[in-house]
Amino acid sequence: MLKFKEWFSHHHEDNAMEGHITQKHYTNPYLIGLLLGIVLLSTFLIMGRGLGASGVLSTAVSVAVDKVAPSQTENNDFYKGYLGDGTKNPFKDWLTFNILGAVLGGFISGAISGRNKLMVEKGPRFSKGKRFLYAFIGGSLMGFGAKMARGCTSGQALTGGAMLSVGGWAFMIMVFVGAYGMAYFVRRQWT
């Protein structure tokens, strides 16, 4: 039986270096874009909908709030939207299975390319503790922003972008504005 740890570093070549980023074995971005476009197009053709990644986190939060304080979710349309009408498990949802698949797909690709490794992504001048704090803060802003915008990079920018949705394009432009505007202030984290 394979030991779990061996999955994470069983390659002779280490393609996930700490300190500086390594370009090894990353596929050409235009080819990746083409493949991602085909995945997205297939989703449209098969399901009649696009991709989405933030939905599962919302379901998890809504279920947790409902367990701890049911009175909170009763009069809140946001939570109720993710809890459904109670006839089926809220996690028995398209987006949940979609993201579970993505987790497995990422693991398979990482295993093939020798990039599955327990590590922290950060620049050489930044401490791990601060990186965890920044990751949490950035994640919080992402969660809040994605709900405000009714979707994230997958649901609004990619899916809405391909459908030429006005909201999707407005969202996407502002993502780049926000990220480029903030980049200078957090440069020590990455460079």
Binding site: L51, A53, S54, L57, I99, A102, V103, G106, E121, Y134, A135, F136, I137, G138, G139, S140, L141, M142, G143, F144, G145, A146, K147, M148, A149, R150, C152, T153, S154, Q156, G167, A170, F171, M172, I173, M174, V175, F176, V177, G178, A179, Y180, G181, M182, A183, V186, Q189, W190
Partner: peptide, 23 residues
């Protein structure tokens, strides 16, 4: 959607991921 995109973008460069890529 404009405001949500702006907040998500700021969070993107601070946090380093977006929801799909974090998975």
């Amino acid at each position: 959607q404009l405001l949500g995109g702006l907040i998500l973008g700021v969070g993107f460069v601070i946090g380093g991921y977006c929801p799909g890529t974090s998975a």
